[in-house]
Amino acid sequence: MNDIVRAVEREPESLISHLVELRTRIVRAGISVLVPFVCLVYWAPEIFRLLARPLMENLPHDGKLIVTDVTGSFFAPMKVTMLVAFIIALPFVLYQLWAFIAPGLYQHEKRLIAPLVCTSYALFLCGMAFAYFVVFPNILRVMAHYNAPLGAAMNTDVDKYLSFAMTMFVAFGVTFEVPVCVVLLVRIGLVTVAQLRANRAYVVVGAFIVAAVVTPPDVFSQLMLAAPLVALYEVGILAARVFVRSRHDKNDSGEPNSLD
């Protein structure tokens, strides 16, 4: 009876200690974002100009980047700088998340977290780079071409362009996570490689639906997102097949299954 009472008394203490640790992890993650932001804020206008370069290079000679909000010229560069600071600090932020949940994970799950986080971070950066260097110039060139026959001046508001850029960064960053998601689904046993192959047609249709919702309403922009999405799904299938084969080889050689 005394053991039960002590266990009940320890539960609030355990909850409070977890909340305190969570607060500490959040504060550390926030500081890790704030430090690079403070270091970069002086160059905020240059960082925004770097983001706006694909637009400026594809605007017609009479096109301009304009501000329609009184505070737009201040907050737009700040938002871009904060995004850059968050990307720089993201590995440390993910580490704080991992450190908080690690005590509740099994050993084989801990071994899986590190390569999963590193691969996801690298692929997200690749997606953003693909959007900036490939998608932005082509989409903006097409949009400028559409405006030319209308005789309309292409003057883009900084907030509208920032919203467009953020949407594209997130869309392509998440798209490049598809191989990790596919391998993870196979790893935890929710799907098999055979099922992934059988559902290719549905994935193609879903890719074009997602592209139609996220990208500007033209076929070229939709292809720029849908094609990589389908290609990365195929890469995920190949990676999952290699992973399953290597795991089976380990099991056949007498090594213990990491899922056990």
Results as ranks from 00 to 15, higher is better:
54 P>T: 08
74 F>C: 14
58 N>T: 08
77 P>H: 04
117 V>P: 00
73 S>Y: 11
111 R>N: 10
105 L>Y: 13
106 Y>H: 13
105 L>H: 07
54 P>S: 12
45 P>F: 08
116 L>S: 14
94 L>R: 06
55 L>E: 03
87 I>Y: 06
109 E>T: 01
63 G>A: 15
41 V>F: 14
68 T>Q: 09
99 A>C: 04
63 G>P: 02
112 L>N: 01
46 E>H: 05
85 A>Q: 07
54 P>G: 05
54 P>W: 02
114 A>Q: 15
52 A>L: 03
97 L>E: 05
60 P>F: 02
72 G>I: 08
49 R>L: 10
43 W>H: 01
105 L>F: 12
63 G>R: 07
105 L>P: 07
110 K>A: 00
82 M>N: 06
84 V>T: 10
43 W>V: 02
98 W>H: 10
102 A>M: 09
95 Y>K: 05
57 E>Y: 03
64 K>D: 14
106 Y>E: 12
66 I>P: 01
113 I>T: 15
109 E>I: 00
62 D>N: 13
98 W>F: 13
62 D>H: 06
85 A>E: 09
107 Q>V: 08
45 P>E: 14
92 F>I: 04
104 G>I: 05
91 P>E: 07
107 Q>W: 15
56 M>G: 04
95 Y>P: 00
51 L>M: 14
98 W>C: 02
97 L>Q: 07
44 A>G: 03
105 L>M: 15
99 A>P: 01
75 F>K: 03
59 L>S: 04
81 T>R: 03
114 A>Y: 14
86 F>V: 15
89 A>Q: 15
57 E>S: 09
109 E>P: 00
116 L>C: 06
102 A>K: 14
51 L>Y: 02
53 R>T: 05
90 L>D: 08
51 L>F: 07
67 V>P: 00
48 F>V: 00
43 W>S: 05
67 V>D: 12
68 T>H: 00
86 F>E: 11
97 L>D: 02
79 K>R: 13
42 Y>I: 10
76 A>S: 14
87 I>H: 03
49 R>G: 01
70 V>Y: 15
98 W>E: 06
102 A>C: 08
79 K>Q: 15
